[in-house]
Design a protein around this nucleic acid. Sequence first.
DNA 1: CACACGTGGAA
DNA 2: TTTCCAAGTGT
Length: 309
Amino acid sequence: MTVTANSFTALSLRIATEPNTQTTVASILTRWYEANARDLAWRRPGASPWGVLVSEVMLQQTQVSRVEPAWQRWMERWPTPAHLAADPPGEAIRAWDRLGYPRRALRLHACAAAIVERHDGEVPDDVEALLALPGIGTYTARAVAAFAFRQRHPVVDTNVRRVVARAVAGEADGGANTTPADLRAVEALLPGDEEAAARASIAFMELGAVVCTARAPRCEECPLIGDCAWRLAGSPPSEGPSRRSQRYHGTDRYVRGLLMAVLRASDDPVPAERLDAVWPDADQRRRALDGLLTDGLVRQRDKTFTLPG
DNA sequence: CACACGTGGAA
DNA sequence: TTTCCAAGTGT
């Protein structure tokens, strides 16, 4: 995503020409969101900062439809960081089930422990403290500060990068990662008021998630149609090399997944032979298991293996 | 900074 | 069936 002063000004000017309306992208999207927001459990008024944090971690690289049931079960079992921290990390990994990237479960457990130790069990409300927690990065720290504590921060994920890249910069898609420039560009689009900024941030994300999608965007449903720089430019295709397609079956990651599935399903220590049975390639099996041990996702005791206790 | 890291929904 | 890609983080 490359947002120049020119492209930014062009959008502002164009929208400003519309008669008797509030004239910012943020206000348009906020109004759209109020009428079109999905009813997600972690957005409801009763959701705690912990609930918001858990949802954000689960949503990293994972679709909403898969997160919803997992989040419900998780919050019933561990309604506060202290509840989670009191159980072994292996239980978090087991409960994570097939959400993917189980290191997230391990870090979320460590995050809960850090919140108990450093913040008296309360999710901290400032970005710096959030960033210092395990598994909480640039995106998640600001998402929690904005959505749980209603603060004004640029909340930039893949959706927001894409929305801004299209609507403002006129490009087909955003960059692969959030850069400091992205944060500045999005910050400049937010209204000054904290609550209004928090609402705008979730609106940007929602638009990217349900309308301004990566494949087959629903431009007819978009409140920015007519103002979108990408559309006005004729929806040019993305330039540059498309990201190399990611195979999965047969990779080390795949074998790690097989091993973890066995360990999750067992309440007892698993003998090495049972793990040997999941994949024929011994070298690859060894690589995967070593990685899991190094990551702390698996513990070894003699010739048996378990989730961390 | 490029890369590793799971799993499955949808086209 | 393939291919894309989904609210990223840590190294």
